[in-house]
Design a protein around this nucleic acid. Structure first.
Ligand SMILES: [Mn+2]
Ligand SMILES: [Mn+2]
Ligand SMILES: [Zn+2]
Ligand SMILES: [Zn+2]
Lengths: 148, 148
DNA sequence: GAGTCTAATGAGAATGAGTCCCATTAGCTG
DNA sequence: CAGCTAATGGGACTCATTCTCATTAGACTC
């Protein structure tokens, strides 16, 4: 059984293998951690998770890897209104989700909505400009906070 | 002739007048600058504009004013992927626009799309959570950059 | 396997947006 | 005008992110 995350990991490794990049433990660990996630992680969370897993990686290397992956479109930087940015794998088929942040507890929920995607494509069509990426962030009250 | 910005300024001043806040030059200048804008400004841009206009205001007061206005829903904090956040007036009738950033030159264009708003309302309906705000950011190539 | 070249690493310094502190200024009320 | 205290602003501080640079370690040759 190969999860979508494992698919992304091998896809990413294959892509990087043929790019003149040397193999490195630091990069491998960051990529495998990102691939194991179902939602975004911040640089700090990555540093902490890797440390806990016994695969400590220098902060500079984490940021360098993230920058490199963003530049190649393999991950996406996501800003959720917090102090630090988050990063998540981008599926090669373009499939993705967006986020809703609870303004009370800060909890983040992912959602996937084809009709919203269609609406955004339509907007891009209406504006006569080339749109190649978009962010959507909803803010509101999550279920847990609503029941209080 | 009263522009929408002037309307926002008086609306804001009226609202603040009946809130136990003292009148202050610093706050007044920030509010008038924001009201004169048709799109978002960063704290740094505000500091610079006010300095140029001969109305220098301390950085701390600028941030305090922005925080206060955000807390009362009079302005909105907008993150456009840059290092600093931007802020723009929120019209009392809820009317607003979103932004498209050129990934080449960084230029920002505002757009207003009722159909997109309807689509977002529909998403909020589908998720069974209370959604009370949203951000949308498009990234792409602007007209100027496309012609190069 | 040793030698060479240089990409990659990581500790720590540097940067910079935003926050905090606190002595001073200036609205407001009587 | 006096007294009270909200508001100001210079500058210290925080903390995410970037930069520096001496060291490590892939990859390729012999
Ligand atoms: Mn989408
Ligand atoms: Mn909208
Ligand atoms: Zn919540
Ligand atoms: Zn452009």
């Amino acid at each position: 059984m190969s999860s979508p995350g494992e698919h992304w990991i091998s896809y990413t490794n294959d892509l990087l293998a043929g790019s003149g990049l040397r193999k490195s433990a630091a990069r491998t660990h960051v990529i495998e951690l990102l691939g194991a996630q179902h939602c975004a992680l911040s640089a700090q969370e990555i540093e902490h998770h890797l440390g806990t897993d016994g695969h400590r990686v220098g902060r500079a290397s984490i940021y360098r890897t993230l920058e490199m992956l963003v530049a190649r479109g393999l991950i996406k930087r996501i800003d959720m209104g917090r102090a630090e940015a988050s990063f998540e794998a981008t599926m090669p088929d373009g499939h993705h989700h967006h986020h809703m942040v609870c303004s009370q507890c800060g909890n983040v929920a992912a959602f996937d909505d084809p009709q919203l995607e269609a609406a955004i494509d339509a907007v891009a069509e209406r504006l006569s400009a080339t749109v190649n990426d978009h962010d959507v962030l909803l803010r509101g009250i999550c279920g847990t906070c609503a029941a209080s």
